[in-house]
Amino acid sequence: MREPEPSGREDAAPAGRAWQTSVALHGAGTDIAQARHLAADFLARGQAERGLRVSRRGLDLTQLVVSELVTNVCKYAPGPALMNLRIDGDVVEVTVWDSDPVLPVARGADADRVGRHGLEIVMAVAQGFEARLERCGKSVTARIALTDDPAGTHQGDPH
């Protein structure tokens, strides 16, 4: 399977304004790790090129959400998919689109259930969550705060 490649859709908006990048996903298990690395690289570029403040927690939660959403696509939505990362102020929006028109549903808490907790995790750590039907398939968006408190801000390379 091919690796996800940036689509070239990175927005060149001035510092302080919304900007984004997108990547096509190919349904391979390697998409998960590569999407997580893309998210970390995107946030690192935001820090280096735009002075974006990203706490360690913001980076970790972004990578967790990316991992969970892309895992769901790889497991349950065969076909093409797209991940979009968009930063607006101190929030990153992670949107994953796939061609499956079935909206995800979070299950109730069940300590005995093995697996299938990803959506619950995303909804617990995100500031906002939305799943909606699209003209073709669906999109799932989670919004994650990039900073927590000024003392916890990580200014170095997020890797």
Rank of each mutant, 00 (worst) to 15 (best):
G108A: 14
V54D: 09
I87K: 00
V92I: 00
L64A: 08
G58M: 04
L64H: 09
A13D: 15
V66T: 13
G27H: 00
E93L: 13
S67H: 13
L25A: 15
A24F: 01
E93R: 04
V73A: 11
V102H: 08
G58L: 08
C74L: 05
C74T: 12
L61M: 02
L25Q: 13
D41S: 01
L103E: 09
L38W: 09
V92N: 04
R107I: 10
R86M: 06
W97M: 10
A40Q: 08
L25E: 13
A48K: 11
L43H: 12
Q20S: 12
D112Q: 15
H37Y: 10
V114F: 02
V96R: 04
V105Q: 15
R116F: 11
R57L: 05
P14Q: 07
Y76H: 06
G46Q: 04
D100I: 00
G115F: 02
L103C: 10
A39C: 15
T30F: 08
M83H: 12
V94R: 02
A111S: 14
Y76R: 10
C74S: 07
L69A: 05
G118P: 09
R86V: 14
P80D: 09
G115S: 00
T21H: 13
V96T: 12
Y76F: 07
A35V: 11
V102T: 01
R53H: 14
D98C: 05
